[in-house]
Simulated assay, not measured.
Amino acid sequence: MADRPEVLVVTGAGGMGSAVARRLGSGRTVLVADASLAQLDRLVDALCSEGYAAQGVVTDVSDRKSVEKLAETASGEGRLAAVVHTAGVSAATASAQKIFEVDMVGTVHVIDAFEEVAAPGTSLVCVSSMAGHMASLSREEEAVLATAPAEELMGLDAVAAVGDNAIGAYILSKRANHVRAEAAALAWNRRGARINTLSPGVISTAMSRAEAESDTGAHMLRMLDACGAGRMGTTGEIADAAAFLAGPESRYITGTDLLVDGGQAAWIRRHRPAH
């Protein structure tokens, strides 16, 4: 009996998702998931024309049943090697409510649904953000974010305190990604699987370009110069980091976050002038 094929799941058909699919998809069945059928079709068509065995699954990560269907589909295709969750929205393009639904609750749906089908060797990489390292939360607030059922997250005091502040919602959601992966690592370990988060800084994507054109964009770009990086990161660099966390070189790494930000968070913590 032939071995079951390896399956790679990539949520999000944007710049990071497409780079990850190409970096990790060779020789595997690639399932790409996105809420936009048009964007999904464009990426799947491109991947197939390049020789990848790719197929699309329309998925709204903010809908638990939609994510559970994706996990079930992936499990049925073969041995689940890796899941890289890049789907998300930003403060420049979405409301606080939408950010919480997609970036925070949606990530919990992915963690929960794929835990049920994870096999020995499966690696889940959730793309978070450097912004998560900027959150100021108490230990108690983080503990609740890490463990509350998905359906209760929108009712938390920390969420209510953000109100309509989209930037605040983004920061809180991305910190929630970090602590959620930490808390989930035990259950994933018991399945012989791993879970980590990956926190990009400013990466050259359509989303980051929209942010650069927003009110906070000039400040963001000045910080890149101040921290010494002098440039945005590339989607290829994020794909390389995801490949490391999804691959055998990191088999003893789980429940943690990898910052890929050109040193921006370190500069903010240690060198940014006090106001």
Rank of each mutant, 00 (worst) to 15 (best):
T254M: 11
A81F: 04
L221I: 11
A81R: 11
S90C: 07
F244M: 14
S129N: 05
R23L: 04
V83I: 14
D60V: 06
L8K: 00
R251H: 15
I238E: 02
S129F: 03
I167V: 14
G163L: 09
E142Y: 01
S128N: 07
D261E: 12
A21W: 07
M134Q: 14
E182A: 12
N177P: 00
A193P: 01
A158F: 04
E50S: 13
G17F: 10
G230M: 09
Q264N: 11
Q39E: 12
E249M: 13
F114M: 08
I171F: 09
A176R: 04
N189Y: 09
T205A: 07
I99M: 07
G17A: 08
A38Y: 00
T107Q: 10
T29I: 14
V61A: 02
G192M: 06
G12S: 13
T197C: 12
A169Q: 08
R23N: 03
E72T: 09
S26E: 15
H133V: 01
S250E: 14
G78V: 09
S62G: 14
G217E: 10
P248G: 13
L258Y: 10
A135C: 13
A210C: 01
S62M: 00
G14E: 02
A265M: 05
A266N: 08
A166E: 01
E213I: 00
S138W: 12
S214G: 13
R270E: 08
M104L: 15
